Amino acid sequence: MTKPVTVNMIILAAQRPGKVDPLAIAHEVSHKCLIPIAGKPLIVHVLETASRHPAVGAVRISIEPSAFAEMHPLVDYLNDAGGGIECTASADNLADSVLEAMTQLSDGPTIITTADNALLTSDAIDAMIAILTGDADVALAMAPKSAVLKTHPDGQRRFYKFSDDHYSNCNLYGLSGHEALSAAEIFRGGGQFAKKAGRIIESFGLINLLLLRSGWISLPSAMARISKRIGLTITPVVLPDGRNAIDVDNERSYRIVSGLLGQTAD
């Protein structure tokens, strides 16, 4: 009899040091993850999807300790329904926040996402688990441009060009276990990694950077080249549901996600 798979989950919910997100200010809350959307705080949509998934065990919310008191009522409510959710102190950057959260979790497959990923689907978690329980050290979820635009014509404006298609990042990542933790370095300095050529050259190499930016290489081939460079097997997870690539970044995307959540509830 096959033993059921259990995965950990980390939800990144902290703000940039010294800054309050403009959406949080507009909605008069301390953190973007607490803005109300479709009748619930933003992060609750992510937490509900995670806690209801049969394969998700421990869940860690990475956020500033100063926000723990605001998070506890939400966490207690969801844990009463059987969730294994706890808050953990975030660090000054995403890489160290992931590293800190991982130290509190048992070794094994871990999925990482963000608190604004309100449209995260159970099928996306299934797809990540399938890859992480195979040969991959790192899983990276992407959605094809056509799938994103089918979901909403203005759902995402930034796509990465590869020779096989255009893709959007889904803010959904996976590590096979503690041995793959070095991959967390791609988060260092925040979410602007793809915009900072110096860090890409240092990590991936100049030729890989040129190939990535030219669009002359397919997504699987690009990940294979980067895997060889960093010594970890990075596998792209192409999600056919474009909702997974639409998160809450600003007032425009807030309205889009709010409408899509309303459709899901119908």
Rank of each mutant, 00 (worst) to 15 (best):
D96W: 01
G82Y: 03
S62E: 04
H45M: 13
M71S: 05
H53S: 12
A81Q: 14
N79R: 12
E86K: 07
L94P: 00
A58H: 14
M71D: 03
L47R: 04
D96L: 11
V59L: 13
C87H: 06
G83T: 01
L99Q: 05
I63L: 11
S97K: 00
E64R: 00
G82A: 12
V56D: 07
T88E: 07
A81N: 03
A91M: 08
A67M: 09
L94Y: 14
A69I: 06
A50M: 14
S97A: 07
E100P: 02
E48P: 06
A81T: 03
K40E: 13
A38M: 07
S97T: 02
G82I: 05
L94D: 04
H45F: 07
H72V: 11
L42N: 08
A38Q: 13
A38S: 15
D96S: 11
D76K: 12
A91Q: 12
V44G: 03
A95C: 15
K40P: 06
V56T: 08
E64P: 00
I43F: 12
S97V: 01
L47T: 00
S51G: 04
V46R: 03
C87E: 03
S66R: 04
L42M: 15
N93S: 09
G83R: 03
I43E: 00
P73G: 08
N79T: 01
D92R: 03
R60N: 08
E64H: 06
G82R: 02
F68E: 07
A101H: 09
K40V: 01
N93E: 04
V98N: 03
T49Y: 09
F68P: 08
P54W: 12
A67D: 11
A95K: 02
D96R: 06
G82T: 01
C87G: 08
A50W: 11
C87A: 14
D96G: 01
V75T: 05
L42I: 05
T103E: 08
G84V: 00
D76V: 06
E48S: 13
N79V: 02
G39Q: 04
G57E: 04
E100D: 06
N93P: 07
L99K: 12
S62K: 04
A50T: 05
L78W: 13
A67V: 00
E64Y: 04
T103A: 13
D92Y: 05
S66Q: 12
N93Y: 10
V56I: 15
E100V: 00
A89V: 00
V46C: 13
H72F: 11
P41S: 10
H53Y: 14
S97F: 12
D92P: 04
